[in-house]
Write a protein that binds this DNA or RNA. Structure first.
Lengths: 206, 206
DNA sequence: TCCAATTACTACTCCCACGTAGCAATATGC
DNA sequence: GCATATTGCTACGTGGGAGTAGTAATTGGA
């Protein structure tokens, strides 16, 4: 029975000890990568732990549950994404093509984050949507304000309601981001910028 | 021991017997409803069976696995959705607002189907995307062809590439559908139609 | 009225991922 | 160097949903 000699239990190598805050960040980063590359199903507590070189109970030491982990992740990414966006938006828009260019550059610099923001994650418990709804609402309000003067500048008719135009603009930016993230070759960022400038020219110059 | 008298095992009431093809349809309908109202996680074999008033093995009699069930569902919905769309699109577009109006009417008539088409379902195994990719590709090709003459008509500059315009148009239709499905009050279909007509007027009349 | 085919049900097994209890190693203050 | 807190690990229990084997009810035809 007592064959505890050769092939003994091989205790796992101890992972380097790391202060809580830093571990927390590492774990969120791992979760982000999993979401972006394999979808949220892939974010199991074991997988996250594994990616950091640690075991599951360590994750539970910092996040009470899988739900809390994912919620924290979505909140962090949306907060930081929102910050990136607000840093880009000027007070008054003169060149929409420039705004799109800046945005797409940001997307390419932090693709995982924007993947997780812009590729809609279905089947998330309601609480998960809070972060997204909030960030999106902020962007929509901001966009609506920016769009108003633009519409007046081109003498747009009444029917072009600012809220609908704002929804449209945001949807288009999201579309561009998705295409850039999934089909980088066919949809080089410059193509969108060319297109948007052509469209603007069509309206103002026509 | 033999207390099999009063509270006996209460065998479940036999569900009415139904031919295979019809059951299949019923089950797909049930799955569709679950997807549309609670997301794909809610589509468990038990839940689907239950909704039809039947038990799990019945479902396995018609679909070899959960994956096959969901695949069949997505295929069916995309096929029928595509048919609806193609029936709407004229050979030559004269009034874009009319096309959008027709489309949104179709969406409101079969909301569950369009929910499942237009609300992206993340975390689906690759095979699930086949139906969507295929249908979307067809629509994109068709749209690209329709958009060409339109661009020439308004003397659009070179930079407005037809493929990008097509992606844009499709993205906007999807956005409109999503908003109509989720926020029917704030985004009455007429508002989109008004907006699109105003936008068209801005380009052609300006 | 009986038989065979069809349809449905009961009662499992299996697996996977969540979440936890308790122990082991490593830092840190004295 | 030694106590103690901190961080990590092993080894479970648990629940829920996929999938299956075998049986029972129903129906349609002879």
């Amino acid at each position: 029975m007592e064959t505890r000699q050769m092939q003994s239990k091989k205790r796992r190598a101890y992972a380097p000890r790391v202060p809580a805050e830093q571990r927390r960040t590492e774990l969120l980063d791992a979760a982000l990568h999993l979401v972006a590359t394999q979808g949220q199903r892939a974010v199991t507590m074991d997988a996250v732990a594994d990616r950091v070189g640690v075991t599951k109970p360590v994750v539970y030491g910092l996040f009470a549950s899988r739900t809390e982990l994912l919620t924290a992740l979505l909140r962090r990414e949306h907060e930081q994404g929102l910050a990136q966006l607000l840093a880009i938006l000027p007070d008054r828009i003169t060149d929409p093509g420039q705004v799109l260019a800046d945005f797409l550059r940001v997307v390419r610099v932090t693709p995982d984050r924007w993947h997780c923001i812009v590729m809609p994650m279905a089947d998330m418990p309601p609480e998960f949507h809070d972060a997204r709804e909030h960030a999106r609402a902020v962007v929509l309000r901001r966009t609506e304000k920016l769009v108003g003067p633009l519409l007046r500048a081109v003498h747009a008719p009444e029917g072009l309601a600012p809220d609908i135009v704002a929804q449209t603009v945001v949807a288009l930016f999201e579309m561009a981001a998705r295409l850039v993230l999934t089909d980088q070759e066919a949809f080089a960022p410059e193509r969108f910028i060319t297109a948007i400038r052509a469209a603007v020219g069509l309206v103002t110059g026509g």
